[in-house]
Design a protein around this nucleic acid. Structure first.
Length: 414
RNA sequence: GCGGGAGUAGCUCAGUUGGUUAGAGCGCCAGAUUGUGGCUCUGGAGGUCGUGGGUUCGAUUCCCAUCUCUCGCCCCA
């Protein structure tokens, strides 16, 4: 039994769970298309370098969470931990910087070597949105509004809160980093062990610490908002105005930072209290430096990723499977007829199922279990008359229908 | 990677102060019912008590390790 365990942090998506995932993806795709986004798919793995360079060597994802391996040609390959880097690479690879803005929607599995919890797996699934080649605040507002519209369409918007912040431009960030470090150095001895480490790796992260002592120290820290360049401050203001105009409710969280190096300006998260420690369901931001960092032309961009498992958990019960029509042949001759009849009905667009064996009682039980809308019974009597008995499984009403009118009769109600 | 909790049938769980054949409900299969489901009745299958080792005459029970899930941390979607 234990040898049939799936690999840690992976799971099978059986029909009911898969319907939940599919509903998330289909809803997101439909809404994204109304904003003029088109779906793409990039490879599930890339050269390790793509992720290492884009996300930053010191980020947790790169330093300890990547599924990397050496292929038979000796290349270091990594299963993608996120979509953004791969899509940016694709933009450069395909010369799409000549056709900006490029608006991409994508969905698929991601891989991170982490300790699993509810809503956190080693193979998980994300929906992803990237708007590449637009540096205007309208782009930020629309990308965030699009995420909000998806959450609303999924019926989970009221369980989520939108937090936004700005990380400023490179200039603002560098200046603030120095100021913040000066301040924090004075408290070095009081900071948590994690935060002392972060002084070296990513001091901005300390702003987001959950340690109570850290929080107290951070409470008195200088704010990035007070050290933005005028241009960065104006941009953040413009984004807020546009969100307000779109009536997207948000709050500013000055301590919202990002673990990945490539973010600039707008950072945002849709968070929920309903998933324990895994509060972020959609998160993203602007990354104006990434494409240049990867070797392409300087190109502004903004995007986000949403966790499909987390969204499905918030959603609760997935939509029910569509109701089939159950065929119930009685007798050997009817069995043969049913085989062809099933195919004709399917070609007419109906969902048709049958249980292949058992007496009519068993087959009717099976039909009820499949939540069939109708049972179509065929026996010697019906065969002789070229008809079938259609039973409405909700009302129990039955009528005999000529075979050539069967599809129309079932289609009208199916 | 760090710290806590849990693991008994497909599912939800009971139980064994260490002692022969480990139980229930639901689900599954079959029969009552080879032309009619959701109700009912009867019967049946299904468990190396997560895995490995130790202690013991004897371990599902005690001890150790390990795996998986889970809660928190780190980090993130």
């Amino acid at each position: 039994m234990s040898s049939f365990q799936p690999v840690r942090g992976t799971r099978d998506l059986l029909p009911e769970a898969h319907r939940g995932h599919r509903h998330v993806v289909e809803t997101a795709r439909r809404v994204a298309e109304t904003y003029g986004f088109h779906e793409v798919a990039t490879p599930i793995f890339e050269f390790t370098d793509i992720f290492a360079r884009s996300m930053g060597e010191t980020s947790d994802v790169v330093s300890k969470e990547m599924y990397s391996f050496t292929d038979k040609a000796g290349e270091s390959i990594t299963l993608r931990p996120e979509y953004t880097a791969g899509i940016c690479r694709a933009v450069i690879s395909n010369g799409l910087t000549q056709a900006l803005p490029f608006k991409a929607f994508a969905a698929g599995p991601m891989f991170r070597y982490e300790r699993p919890q509810k809503g956190r797996q080693r193979q998980f699934h994300q929906i992803d949105l990237e708007l590449i080649g637009a540096g205007e605040p309208e782009a930020d507002a629309e990308v965030i509004a699009l995420a909000f519209d998806i959450l609303a369409a999924l019926g989970v918007a009221e369980k989520c809160r939108l937090e936004i912040n700005t990380l400023g431009d490179a200039e603002s960030r560098a200046a603030y980093r120095t100021i913040l470090l000066d301040y924090l150095q004075a408290f070095r001895g009081d900071l948590s062990e994690d935060s002392r480490r972060r002084l070296e790796t990513n001091p901005l992260r300390i702003l987001d610490s959950k340690d109570p002592v850290d929080r107290e120290i951070v409470g008195g820290a200088p704010l990035l908002a007070d050290h933005l360049t005028p241009a960065a401050a104006d941009f953040f203001q413009a984004v807020q105005e546009r969100l307000a105009r779109l009536r997207i409710p948000f709050e500013i969280n000055a301590h919202l930072v990002r673990g990945l190096d490539y973010y600039t300006h707008t950072a945002f998260e849709f968070v929920t209290e309903a998933l324990g420690a895994q509060g972020a369901v959609v998160a993203g931001g602007r990354y104006d430096g990434l494409i240049a960092e990867l070797g392409g032309p300087q190109t502004p961009a903004i995007g986000w990723a949403g966790g499909i498992e987390r969204l499905a958990l918030l959603m609760g019960d997935p939509p029910p499977a569509p109701r089939p029509i159950a065929l119930v042949p009685v007798g050997a001759a009817a069995e043969t007829t049913a085989l062809g009849l099933a195919r004709r009905l399917r070609q007419a667009g109906l969902i048709v199922d049958w249980s292949y064996r058992g007496n009519p009682g068993k087959r009717m039980k099976r039909a009820a279990k499949l939540n069939a809308a109708y049972a179509v019974l065929i026996g010697d009597d019906e065969l002789a008359r070229g008809s079938a008995t259609v039973r409405d499984l909700d009302s129990g009403a039955q009528e005999e229908v000529p075979l050539d009118r069967l599809a129309a009769r079932l289609g009208a109600h199916g």
